[in-house]
Computed example of a mutant assay.
Amino acid sequence: MRQYIAYALVLGIIWCFVSGKISILNFMFGSFLGVLTMLSLKKLYRLEEDTSCGNCMRRIPKLATFLTILMIEITKASVLIAKIILGPKLDIRPGIIAVPIRASKDASITAIANTISLTPGTLTIDVSDDMKTLYVHSIDVSDPVALKASIRDKLERYVLEAFE
C-alpha cells in the first residue's frame, strides 16, 4: 500500500510539471489520476512485487543504458534502411523469423516487442501462446541466425536488465 502512495505522489508531481501549473489542487488531481492509472495497470505491472525504493534507484542506470542502446540501434538501423532505399538495386530478402526470448514478465515481453518494432526494418508480429517466442518480420533475413543473435544480445539483454 505504501508504494501506491509513493507512486501517486510522484505522479502528482510529474502531472504538475507536464500540465505547466504547479498548485496544490493540480497536484491532488495528478495524484488522483496516478491512482486511477495504477489501479487499471496493477495486474500488468504487479506493484506489490519488488518495489523497494532501493530497487527502483538501482534500475535507473540500467534504464538509461537501455535507452542509450536503443537510440544507437535505431540510428544504425535507420542508416541501413536508408542505404537499402537509396541503393540502385533493391537487394533484400524479407521474411518472418521466430525469436526465442528469455523474458518472464509481461512488462519485459512488451518492452522487447516494442523495442523490436521501434527499430527500423523490423516489426514484431506475434507472441507465442507460451510467451517464449516472438515472431518478427524483418526487411532482410538473409542471415536469420545473426538476426536472432542481434535481437537477443543487443536488445533483449538490456531489456532484461532494465525490467526484470
Rank of each mutant, 00 (worst) to 15 (best):
F163E: 06
D91C: 06
E49G: 04
L11N: 00
A64Q: 04
D129S: 14
L118T: 06
D153P: 13
R93G: 07
S78M: 09
R58Y: 08
K89G: 00
P120G: 00
S128K: 00
G20F: 08
G121I: 05
I151C: 13
A98M: 11
G95L: 08
I116F: 01
T122E: 10
I60S: 01
A6V: 12
S150Y: 15
I24R: 01
I14Y: 02
L123G: 03
N26C: 00
A98Q: 11
I22K: 04
K89D: 06
I112C: 06
D91K: 11
S108W: 10
A82T: 10
K42A: 12
Y45I: 14
L9D: 09
L36E: 03
K21A: 12
A77N: 14
K21V: 14
S138P: 08
I5H: 07
K105V: 07
I116T: 04
G54P: 05
D129I: 10
S150I: 08
I60K: 01
G54S: 12
F163Q: 04
L36V: 07
I116K: 02
T133N: 07
V99H: 00
P100T: 06
L160H: 00
K132R: 05
K148H: 12
L44A: 01
E73K: 08
L36N: 09
I139W: 04
Y135S: 04
V79F: 15
L39M: 03
I60Q: 02
T122D: 11
D130S: 10
D140M: 07
L41K: 09
L44G: 00
V79I: 15
C56E: 02
L80F: 12
T37F: 15
V159G: 00
R46I: 01
M1A: 09
L67C: 14
S117F: 10
R152H: 15
L70Y: 05
L67M: 13
S31A: 15
T133W: 06
I101C: 01
S40W: 14
E49T: 00
I22T: 09
T110I: 10
G87R: 06
E49V: 04
K132P: 06
L147C: 12
K42I: 11
A64W: 05
E156L: 07
G95I: 03
L11H: 07
P94T: 01
L155Q: 11
L25D: 15
K42V: 10
I81D: 09
S128A: 09
T110E: 05
V79D: 09
I125P: 13
V127F: 10
T68F: 15
Y135C: 00
V136E: 04
S138F: 10
L118M: 12
K89N: 03
V35P: 13
D50L: 01
